[in-house]
């Protein structure tokens, strides 16, 4: 049986009817149409589905939607809510060539967001570790790492988050 839960996604509450077996990924993509959240493996190995739950980066494919009641969920769509002014992480990903096919991008950005929130000027090693659960087949990670470092600088200069 479906049950109605309230999900707090990108700052707005959504009442959704979900099956107990439904993952957060499924509900975000299918019910809320937040298709920026990707599904690359369904087993928590690739990181393409990464979202923030109460500030922590988690695999939305491994999280059950019914467990998310009352928690604050941030997806890639929540990084730059206005749609006009991008988040520095997004800007840096674009400028530094950190995006190729783009399928890992949202998850990478969310892992970067999580990292920079707690560690605004990470070392290269810290960046690598922060995205070690996010696989990318196109970029070899090099420009992604550069972009995250660059975003860290930008955020430090503008006094933190812009969104």
């Amino acid at each position: 049986m479906k049950q109605v839960i309230t999900l707090n996604v990108n700052g707005a509450p959504y009442a959704v009817a979900v099956y107990p077996s439904q993952t957060l990924n499924e509900v975000l993509r299918e019910e809320l149409n937040l298709t920026g959240v990707k599904l690359g493996c369904g087993s928590g190995d690739c990181g393409a589905c990464t979202v923030l739950v109460d500030g922590l980066a988690v695999s939305s494919c491994l999280s059950l939607a019914v467990d998310m009641e009352g928690k604050a969920i941030t997806t890639v769509e929540g990084l730059a809510p206005s749609g006009e002014v991008l988040h520095p992480i997004q800007e840096s990903f674009i400028e530094k060539g950190a995006i190729q096919c783009g399928f890992c991008t949202a998850g990478m950005e969310m892992s970067a967001f999580h990292l920079l929130k707690y560690n605004p000027s990470p070392t290269e090693a810290e960046i690598k570790e922060a995205i070690s659960g996010n696989l990318c087949r196109c970029t070899g990670y090099v420009k992604i790492i550069e972009a995250i470092a660059d975003a860290g600088h930008k955020m430090a200069n503008t006094g933190g988050e812009t969104s």
Partner: peptide, 9 residues
Amino acid sequence: DARAKATGS
């Protein structure tokens, strides 16, 4: 297409 991909759109 970088912007579309960076924003999830």
